[in-house]
Amino acid sequence: MAATALSLPLYLDPKQQQHFHTHLNPTKGPPFLSSRNTFLSLHKLHRNNFKCSLPSSSSTNSVTPAQYYSFLDDPFRGSRFLTNEELENVKTLESFVYFQELESGSLWVRVMRNEEMDLTVGLLAFSFAELMFMSLGYEALLRFFVKQYLIERRAVMPHAVTLVGFYREKGGLRGEELAGTVEVCFDKRGANASPPTPTPPKNSPYVCNMTVTKHLRRRGIGWRLLKASEEIISQLTSSKEVYLHCRMIDEAPFNMYIKAGYNVVQTDSIFILLTLQRRKHLMCKKLPDFNSFPESDMSDSGVELPL
Rank of each mutant, 00 (worst) to 15 (best):
T162I: 11
T162L: 04
V164M: 10
G165K: 02
F166T: 14
R168K: 15
R168C: 09
R168M: 11
K170E: 10
G171W: 08
L173W: 01
L173H: 06
R174L: 13
R174A: 13
G175C: 07
G175D: 09
E176A: 10
E177R: 14
E177C: 13
E177M: 12
T181Y: 00
V182F: 01
E183S: 13
V184S: 02
C185R: 03
F186D: 09
D187P: 06
D187L: 03
R189K: 14
N192M: 15
A193N: 08
A193R: 09
P195H: 03
P195T: 09
P196S: 14
P196D: 09
T197A: 10
P198R: 10
K202M: 12
S204W: 00
Y206I: 02
V207S: 01
T211S: 11
V212N: 05
V212M: 06
V212G: 06
T213A: 15
T213Y: 12
T213K: 12
K214N: 10
H215F: 07
L216Y: 06
R218T: 09
R219F: 05
I221W: 09
I221L: 12
I221G: 02
G222R: 04
R224Q: 15
R224W: 08
R224P: 02
L226D: 02
K227A: 13
S229G: 08
S229E: 05
E230F: 02
E230V: 06
I232A: 04
I233D: 04
Q235H: 15
Q235P: 00
T237S: 12
V242P: 02
V242W: 07
V242S: 07
V242C: 14
V242Y: 01
Y243M: 05
L244H: 03
L244R: 06
H245A: 06
H245S: 10
C246F: 05
R247Q: 10
A252N: 10
P253D: 06
M256P: 01
K259Y: 05
G261C: 05
G261T: 05
Y262K: 03
V265P: 04
Q266D: 15
T267A: 11
F271Y: 13
L273M: 12
L274S: 12
L274C: 11
T275V: 09
T275W: 14
T275H: 14
T275Q: 14
L276V: 07
Q277F: 02
R278M: 04
R279C: 11
R279Q: 13
H281G: 00
K285I: 05
K286C: 15
